[in-house]
Amino acid sequence: MAYLLLLGAVASEVVAALATRFSAGFTKLVPSAVAITGVVGAYYLLSLALKQGMDMGVAYGIWAALGVTAVALVGAAFLGDTLTWAQMIGIVLVIGGVLSLELGGQH
């Protein structure tokens, strides 16, 4: 259940990041409200995952890695952002680091 809450937190954070892009510096009401609600929702869901006993380092690492990966891929696929080979390698390294945190903590 903690991992489902964490995935919800990631999704909420990704929506917030994308809404921020469309908020025009928080001058557009709807995208600004979506961004703020998304961030609050993300932290709330993260707190619930932590409450269920998930380690902070692992939870935050997964959240950050999946979030940055999703935002980068959505930006490249739908928003015209560029994604260079160096950036793709960086994403792979971030995911590898999170996997190391998760697998290294298992007994």
Results as ranks from 00 to 15, higher is better:
A9S: 11
A9G: 05
A9N: 07
A9T: 04
A9H: 06
V10I: 10
V10E: 00
A11G: 09
A11T: 11
S12T: 02
S12A: 15
E13H: 00
V14I: 12
V14H: 00
V15S: 05
V15T: 12
A16Q: 01
A17Q: 09
A17L: 12
L18H: 02
A19K: 02
A19T: 06
A19P: 05
A19E: 00
T20Y: 04
R21K: 15
R21A: 07
R21E: 09
F22T: 08
S23N: 11
S23C: 10
A24K: 15
A24M: 14
A24C: 08
G25L: 11
G25M: 11
G25H: 12
F26A: 07
L29I: 10
L29C: 10
V30P: 00
V30C: 02
V30F: 08
P31R: 04
P31G: 04
S32W: 05
A33D: 03
A33R: 01
A33Q: 06
V34Y: 10
A35M: 13
I36C: 09
I36G: 02
T37R: 06
G38H: 04
G38V: 10
V39N: 04
V39W: 01
V40Y: 02
V40H: 10
G41C: 13
A42M: 05
A42Y: 00
Y44W: 15
Y44A: 14
S47K: 13
S47V: 07
L48W: 14
L48R: 15
A49F: 08
A49R: 02
L50Q: 10
L50C: 12
L50F: 14
L50H: 12
L50K: 07
K51F: 15
G53V: 14
G53W: 15
M54G: 14
M54H: 11
M54W: 13
D55V: 08
D55P: 14
M56P: 10
M56R: 12
G57C: 12
G57Q: 06
V58Q: 13
V58Y: 07
A59S: 15
A59Q: 12
A59E: 10
A59C: 10
Y60L: 05
Y60D: 03
Y60V: 07
Y60T: 05
G61A: 05
G61V: 08
G61M: 05
W63M: 02
W63T: 05
A64S: 13
A64Q: 09
A64R: 05
A64H: 04
T69S: 01
T69V: 09
A70M: 08
V71H: 00
V71A: 03
A72K: 02
L73Y: 03
V74Y: 15
V74Q: 12
G75I: 03
G75W: 03
A76H: 13
A76F: 14
A76P: 00
A77T: 11
A77P: 10
F78C: 02
F78M: 12
F78K: 06
L79M: 04
D81M: 09
D81G: 13
T84S: 11
W85I: 13
W85P: 04
A86N: 02
A86V: 02
Q87F: 08
M88V: 15
M88R: 14
I89H: 04
I89K: 05
G90I: 06
I91N: 08
I91H: 07
I91L: 14
I91Q: 00
